[in-house]
Each structure stands twice: as C-alpha cells, then as structure tokens.
Design a protein around this nucleic acid. Sequence first.
DNA 1: TGCATGAAG
Length: 838
Amino acid sequence: MQIKSKFPAWKKKKRKFRIDKDGIKNKLNPVSQSSVATQNGQVNGVVRQNGGQEPKFLNVTAKEKKRIKRRKNKNKRPLLQTEKELLTSTVQMTNGVLKKIQKISLSEPSPPSTSSKPESPQKSPLPRPKTPTGPSPSTSTPVTSVASPSSTSQNRNILRHEPNFDKFDRPQLPIDVVEQQLMYELASHETLIIIGETGSGKSTQVPQLCVRAGLADSGSIAVTEPRRVAAVSLASRVAVEMGTDVGGIVGFHVRFENATTHKTKIEYMTDGIVLRKALISPLLENYSTVIIDEAHERSLHSDVLMCILKKCQEQRRKGKNPLRLIVMSATLQADKFQSYFDNAKVVLVSGRTFPIEVFHVNPKINKSFSSSDYVYNTVICVKHVHLNEPKGHDILVFLTGSEEIEAVAYQLAELNGSLPASADVIMPVPLYAALRPEKQKEAFKKTPQGARKVIISTNIAETSVTIPGVRVVIDSGKVKIKTFEASNRIDVLKVHNVSKAQAKQRAGRAGRDAPGKCYRLYSREDFQKFEIDNMPEILRCNLSATFLELMKLGMKNPHRLQLIDPPETENIDAALLELTSLGAIRPLNSDKSKFALTDMGDVFCMYPVSPDHARVLFHAQKEGCVMEAIKIISAMQTDALFSGGSDSKNDAEVERIRRKFETREGDHITLLKLVLTTNLFFDEKFCNDNMINEQHLKTASMIEEQLKQIAIEQEVPFSTCGNDFTKIRKSLAIGMFLNSCEYDRQEDRYRLMINPAITLKIHPSSCLSRSKPAYIVFSELMKTNDLYALQVTLIDVDWVRPLISEHKKMRTNHLAESAQRIQEITNSAPKRKKAKTE
DNA sequence: TGCATGAAG
C-alpha cells in the first residue's frame, strides 16, 4: 500500500502557482464592504432581581455524592486523549470565566454589548427566577405561573438534584432576553423551533430551561449534536453552570463513551447515537424531550431523526407521556422547519459575535481577476493582508484540500525572503483532518513574537475546531463536496462554490475574540449566485444504510417517506435495488411497492456499518473467518491507516515501508496483516517508523471491540481461518459483489461487472495497481480526475457470478423473483439468533 | 500511471 503523500516529489517539480510581487494591489481591492454580524445591544435589557419566589434548595447529601461518583467510575471508559484535553481545557476556561465575572460583578457589561442600563447591584443568590421584564407572551396566561419552578411538587423533586446552583453565574447571553417567553412556549407547545445565531447561548441554556420548566419530570432531556466534541464540551460547560459533575445531572453519550447515569437529566448526544437508541426503543420512552441542535447543518442523521421523531410524537400523543420536540437552528430559514412541523411556534434569539467587515474582490478594477485562480489569489491576498493589517492579527485561510494547502504553505514560507525588513515573519500552518495530530496542534499554539500565524485550513476550521486569535479570514469561496451518483453507485468528489450560509459561517470565524475582517476571493456578483444553504447530506449520499434502519423501524414504502427534503426517486430506487440485491429486504407479495426486512437484513441492522460490509461479516460466519472479517471491516471504517505525509522521509523510504506490508492478495489482506502485527506490538515508535496513524489505529481497534460485542450478542461463534486468506477474500467478494470488476486488456481498464459500460482504474495507492489481476472487488469507487477503485482485493469470478446475474435480472423488472433467488443463494448460511425486537 | 472536504454509528 502506498503511503499517503501530502506533497509528493513529482508535484513539487511542476508547481503551478507563482507569486506576483506587483500584483497585490491590482489583484484585490477592498471596495465593497458589508457587515455580516450585528452587534447586539439588547443583551442588558433585563434587570436581575430576586424574585422572592425561589424554591428551597436541598443539598445533595455526602452519601449521595459518593454513590454518584462510584457509579460514574464504574460506567466510564477511559477518555480518548484528545477529548480528555478538550474536557479539561473547557472546564478550566469556564471556571476562569466564572471567577472573572464574579470579581467584576454584574455592573460591568461584557463586550460587545452596548447597553448602558446598569444591572441590579444586589446580586441575586439565584440567577433565576427573574422578574419578567422580557417580551411577554401575548396570551393571558401569566408567565410566572407557568415558569415558576416552585409551581409543582415534581419540580421541587428535580431541583433537589441541583447542588450549589447559586454558587455559579455566567456571562449574560442574548437568550436571557427571551427566557420568560421561552419558558412559556416550552410549557404550551409540543414542538418548538428556536432560531439563534452563534453565541446566543441556546445550546447551553435551552436544556436547562427545560429542566426548570419541569420537562425533566417525565424523562430526560436529550440534546443531539452533529459532532462528538460538541456533545462532550457542551456537557462539561453545562455541568459547571449547574454546579455538578459530568455524569451527574448533566452527561453525554457519544460512540465508545457513555458518561450518563440514572440521575442524568440532560444528555448531550451525537445524533447518530440517538438514531441507534431509536432502533432499540423506537418510542424513546426514556426521554420527555428531544432537542435537535444545529438542525441547519442538515446532517444525514439529524434529518432522519426529525422524520422519526415526528412519527414518534404522533404515537406518544396517544399515551400518557407525550414527546416534546425542540429544533434549534442558526439559519433564518425558519419557514422550512416550521412547515415541516405543522406550523410549529418559532422563537427568535439574537446572536452575539463581534462585527466583521467583509471585503469582496471588485472585478471592475481587477480586469485579470479570475475566481478559479483561487490558490494563486490566496497567496497574493495573504501578502496584502500581512503588509496592511496590524501585527499580531492571525489569519485563517479556507481552501479545499491538503494538496492546495501544502502548496500555499510552501509558497508563503518562501515569501518571507522577499518581505521588507520591518515586516513580521509569516508562519504558515496547514490544518486538515488527515494531518497527523501533533501537526494539527500547531494551529492552536500561541504565535511567537515577531511572527504572524497563517492557518491554512479545509472546512475543518468552519465548525469542528475554533482557533483563538484569528482576526482575519481569507475565504476562497470553494469547498470539496462528495456527492453520490445513484445511477452508477459512484462517489464524486468535486470542488464547488460554498453556499451563502457557509460563506457567512467562514467570515464569522474572524469575530470570535474581537472585531474582525473577512476577505472574499470572489466578487459580490458571484456571491449573489451562490446557493442559500448547503445541500442537505441526505440528497447527496447513498441511502441504503439509512433505509435499512428506517425499515427496522417499520417503514414499508420509502417513496412515501416524509423527509424535510425528499431525495430523488432515482436515488431511492437505487438504494432499494442495492438492499434487495444484498438480501436485506424483499418486496411484499401483496404490494410490490412495499418492502419488508428479511431475517438477514435484521441482522445487518445490528452492526454500525454499511449493509454491504454487514453482509461480509454475515458471510464470514459461513466461511469460518469471523475474526478476520471483523478485523478487516473495522480497519475499513477508519480513514487511511497509513498516513502522515512525506515531509521527513524521501520517496525511497516511502516505497520501502509500503512494501513491508504489501500482499499479493490485495489491500484488505494488507490491512489484516497490519492489524495483526500491531495487535502483537503496538507503540508510538512502531507507528512513527511505519508512518501509521496511531489515532486511526486506535479507533479501528475500538470499532473491532464494538463489532465483537455485537457478534457475541448475536451468538456468532468466533471462527478463524488462520493463513487461509481465500475464505476471507470470498466473504469480501460475496458481501461487496456489487463492486466486482473484470480486467479489460484492450482498454487497460477494469469494467464494473454489474454495469460493463463503466470502466475504471485501480487507485495508485492500492498494492494491486501494478499487478492488474483479472478479477477484483473494491471497497469504494471515487471519481476525481478519473474513476478510481479504492481498497482492492483479488477474487475468483465464480464466487460472484450467480449474484451478479440475479442483480441484473432485478434491474429488468424481475425484482421479486430475483429477491427470492438471492435469499436461496444466501440461505445456505448457518441459522442465527433472531434479533430481539419485532 | 498518479492521489482522498468534513462529520457519524
């Protein structure tokens, strides 16, 4: 397997981008300006007073505290190193903020609020309840009677679990202004949509409001986040605010890590985890309320979740424990969510970021300007900013991929030679997900004196990480997006223009600590042509895994599915054909437009992998190579295990390492050998010497544990094939038979067996790219400059022939009959335990 | 011959 090379030697020789020393002023002119973020002056509009009605707080006894701690330690797995660091730094930071705020007292408004109205000098022992001074609800129901925590006996029950609540305070947030209104709306609506920009405080405050409104009486409050880091850090922040430990009243649950206990009332979770929970208990009875955070990101999981929760709400409305749903989004396109949720109530919350000046390129002045030269323009723009902006203001540049990023970093470093003596040094810092973790950390280090840090990043810096000290953003306006071509089952990775929302998000990264500037390497006219929002993930991915999960939940006809953005019919049919070919579903005899899960499909659902990978695991039982299949499939779930860039090693060295693990059978067996080796001896030095990404290797081994656990629950015996790799290759071929190819000597390309019109190449990173065997199966098909098969294994054509001919028949309207045959072909596999549900 | 945005279970 070839080692991932970030900036290979052959590229260095023909570098495309040159630096034009005089081009700075001509290329970019900050003529048009606008402000994307507005200062919020209403923040201090609320006078904090002691309402005189606060309930008596009962402290948790020492005994109880010990019990919580014991339970927590028992349940807790060790934290991942990065998450540990993140957790401690967040807590430290929050503590610091809290101390500072208490010192300066409430009379000093925190920036950037401009209100001169002073706070009540008398500090309330409790932040709440306040006298209702915010916007009152229009109805006659008195707010206090709804919102007062002491209004019911159950509320007191919840509140007794909040130890030392009054010890803490936090900076004022825009959401405080609408707190009373929110309390009222929470109590009176089943579904609520909250629109609030970054910094409004909705992610931390709304769940706490729910608890105070008594919603936690009948079950926990679930908060879904699209990212692990968000779930972990929000939980720790809210825990500090509520004066409890993570894992007490506030907890989080992400993959591999569950920091919740029976006491947990607010659970921050990744949306994928909630989806998994729904598969096991479809009505989600443990939760009284589900809050979908960052709904505007339109992640696949959150879209599916909204669809499921709508149904779940209908069901639970009949019972005694109705489900409350809160959808939180940053975009102002509330109407889409509103109409989806039957005209649900919308509450607007203002955001709070520092003002940002936005500059666009003016094409009238820059006649030679072309936005497609964005890499070249980036270098010029950095130089312009570096020579004109105050020293110490760091720059964040958005580009599309590692190759561009490394090229710009290289050129910026060279630029230092031609700078005036008075100028600071430019310190380029690349940042992208595939970068080694220690290299990634460079972006967060303090900039040394006499230097300006220029972080050159992919969209990882848009939402996933926040870099302190950034005052200037340079936005290329481009992003790499993977879309799915359903007709040919191909992933296409292409550079696209960003959306307006995304451009705004990027600009906002300059205003985290102080007022900032954003230079856009495209004209105002171009910007107007951009899409309003990002394309929802559900419209650009393979739907087979999602449909399998939804069928487990009882969906029969995917064409009738009520999603917020329904996928194209062609895409739906492709997923149904794929699932039927894999034997996971079959059309109903009574109604051919409806489908049912097969026994095998039911088993597939249990594994958190795609249906074809699940089928590999399933077939491995018949072949007697379950251990090997689990190892390979888990290694396939992570990104490239071989990585790290070629910066310190020459090409010969890369070749030498690559050969060490190479096998004649293909990349999957190579993966297996690597995993088996690292199982025996695995340390940092070994990973460094062999350019293996330690983090990814750890993830793979955690997935391996997870898959093993599921196999145990399914009562699958752990068979092993020893050195007989034929068995595992056969399992891979049968599981992923849709990806089998035949070599065409004339064309010197491979033809996809299910559709010979499609020809492709083996990706150069594969160990079979040179040997070109007659028949192969691959894990993934990716279209970049050409069509490439990734992760390839040598197969015997007889293994896949019957499956392929059935698949072809299915496409020509023999779906039902062929589905039956597929079942028969597969049913020779040993019987296994039926899944618990249904 | 020639290369991989970002999340998630």
